[in-house]
Computed example of a mutant assay.
Amino acid sequence: MNDRVYYFIKPYDESLPLPPAESFAQILNEAYLHPFNWKARTTRKSFWWSTLINLVIGILCILLGFYAFNQNINPGIRIVDGIVAAVVYLWLFLAALGQTIRRLHDVGYSGYWYWAAFTGYGAMFLFYLELQPSVQRQVKWGKYLFSDQDYPKGGAKSNVPVPTIGQILKEHFFDCFKWDARSTRTSFWVGTAISQVIMTIGVLACYLLSFMLLAPFSVTESDSGDAKVIGVIFIIFIIFFIAAAIWAFLAQLGHTVRRLHDAGFNGGWWWLGVIPYVGQLLLAFLLFHPTVQNEVKWDKYLFDPEDRIRQIKIKKIIPIWG
């Protein structure tokens, strides 16, 4: 096997079957005639060719729309052009969605990771996954649409443990100060996404509750008993919100340090995130890095011992390709 490891894209194991080669016609067929076939996988070549075609068709639709609505032509034709453009955009979206889900399957990730596109770093992580080569093993989401080729069972299978949602929540929110450990990529990004959702809901609730608490001041005298009670409640709420924000920061800090350890980096690289823009991007790239298969000095996960034992047993039974 080739022992080289590229930072973003690992080379294929030449001792295992390579992904099937699709013709251009098969790529078009897969992308635009099978948008709802999500129980399958697609190659990196097929995904990026279809992405390029979607971009070209989308630009042509925009140009057609500008022409239709900026020229002195029949209003009926404008309506037809608008409807056609809307239908084309909808079909392009569905085609891209199907291809993205199948591409995630092809690199060993569930299609639900598509939702990462709606977060900042998550969109970058999704882009990173779309760049990865096919995993040279069977996946639980089916095979390629235009090939009967399949990979041998257990080939190139990773020995990285997969935590449950409960374990991820415990690690992210209740193991804030356990830095001398490591955290899987799945654990980090799922925990980060859940934390962002909770913080967004918390900020919205803060604005709403602040409005509800402060609104009575417009009709209540500032030295009245009701105003003083409302003021005390508001101060308690602000203190609680600040404490929750500090807890969320410490939880994210601990998880980030453990994720850096898992990728083979020192936790001190967290300070890159203090540098605006460039530093935050560089830190994100480090957090994208897959788990290093060799042992590191922080070589432990915050899971139950039996889970780690189960992983060790699997490693002894199934040959692991690095």
Rank of each mutant, 00 (worst) to 15 (best):
P75R: 13
K178H: 12
R103A: 06
N29H: 06
D226V: 07
P11R: 10
K39R: 15
I79K: 09
R78P: 01
Q26C: 02
L286Q: 01
A68G: 06
G76H: 06
T192P: 00
R182Y: 04
G82W: 04
N29V: 00
I62C: 02
M212L: 15
S195W: 02
I318M: 00
D307L: 13
Q71W: 07
K313V: 01
V296D: 07
T186Y: 11
A116Y: 14
F146D: 06
V278N: 05
L97T: 15
T119G: 07
K157H: 01
D299P: 09
F8W: 08
K143Y: 02
L213R: 08
K140Q: 10
K143N: 03
N294K: 13
I317K: 10
V56N: 01
Q293H: 07
W189E: 02
G166M: 08
A156P: 00
R310C: 02
P35Q: 04
R182K: 15
E221S: 15
L64M: 06
W179T: 14
R258D: 11
I101N: 07
I233H: 09
S218Y: 14
I230T: 14
P305D: 10
V257Q: 06
L208T: 11
F146T: 02
W91Q: 07
T184Q: 07
N2K: 00
L94P: 03
I168F: 12
A117I: 14
T186N: 12
D307S: 11
I79V: 14
L33R: 13
I275V: 14
A123Q: 03
G267D: 03
R259P: 09
Y144P: 05
F24D: 01
F265L: 09
D81Q: 10
F125I: 00
M1Y: 04
L90I: 08
W141M: 09
A181E: 01
Q26D: 12
K140F: 04
L253W: 13
N74S: 15
Q136A: 13
I198S: 02
W48V: 09
V296T: 15
A181Y: 11
G264I: 00
G191K: 11
T192A: 09
W113A: 07
A68W: 10
G268T: 09
